[in-house]
């Protein structure tokens, strides 16, 4: 037995629980749902006549959905690739592209921000998303000094410190010879959680002179 159809006023209530990006798909189902979605846009944005001009992020719940809007609506933008990197969603990254080279020149011109593979790597590093980091590694993005320089340029260290992913900080500390960026990270981390930094120092038995200096320095931050 099939469900009864919902009247438009109830769809309005249902849609009030959906963020704007999730209202994209219902707009393409029927006139009723499209009109209800428009009503929601209008109620959310005081400048409702301009809602379509704002940057709209399309949903990436699964590859099927990403494929749908990629085929039917538009090519991806950096915000979507970034969201996939933050979610460690390799399948979606494969679909959207690890960089913007596969986008049409027209779309690239219209996008506010283009992206490169190092940017994906940075988001994955910040969150400690191992599948994406490994995929970057296989694409040879993570080896060599040039990548480290790239990460410096992308401001990865302060972000790592802010996120406070100890596993990643420790990994970078052990695997790379990166004393200077460590200072930045520890300062940010110290600001976020002093106890956590203290526990980490104790656990790792970090007693080298330069880190002890940092310990003192960070306390003054």
């Amino acid at each position: 037995m099939t469900a009864q159809p919902l009247p438009p006023d109830l769809w309005t209530e249902v849609f009030s629980f959906l963020p704007t990006s999730d209202l994209c798909v219902p707009c393409f189902t029927s006139k009723t749902l499209r009109d209800v979605a428009h009503k929601i846009f209008n109620s959310r944005d005081p400048n409702y006549h301009h809602w379509w001009r704002q940057k709209k992020q399309l949903p990436i719940y699964n590859v099927e959905m990403s494929h749908w809007w990629k085929v039917n609506i538009r090519e991806p933008v950096w915000e979507r690739a970034r969201a996939a990197a933050l979610q460690d969603d390799i399948s979606t990254l494969d679909l959207l592209g690890w960089d913007d080279t596969q986008l049409s020149p027209r779309h690239r011109n219209l996008c506010e921000l283009n992206w490169r593979r190092e940017m994906i790597l940075m988001e994955a590093l910040v969150k400690g998303n191992k599948r994406t980091i490994n995929a970057c590694h296989q694409k040879e993005d993570i080896s060599g000094v040039s990548t480290v320089e790239c990460l410096l340029w992308l401001n990865v260290w302060p972000r790592l410190g802010e996120e406070g992913n100890l596993e990643m900080i420790r990994w970078l500390h052990n695997e790379q010879s990166l004393e200077e960026p460590m200072e930045w990270m520890l300062q940010r981390k110290w600001n976020k959680s002093q106890d956590e930094v203290r526990r980490w120092f104790q656990r790792e038995d970090i007693t080298t002179e330069w880190l002890m200096h940092l310990w003192e320095h960070a306390r003054d931050m």
Binding site: L6, E13, F17, L18, P26, T29, Y61, E64, M65, W68
Partner: peptide, 16 residues
């Protein structure tokens, strides 16, 4: 309403 809203997430127009 929340449940139906959550049901809509991740579905294509055909699936909805």
């Amino acid at each position: 309403c929340k449940h139906i809203a959550n049901e809509l997430k991740g579905k294509t127009p055909d699936q909805i």
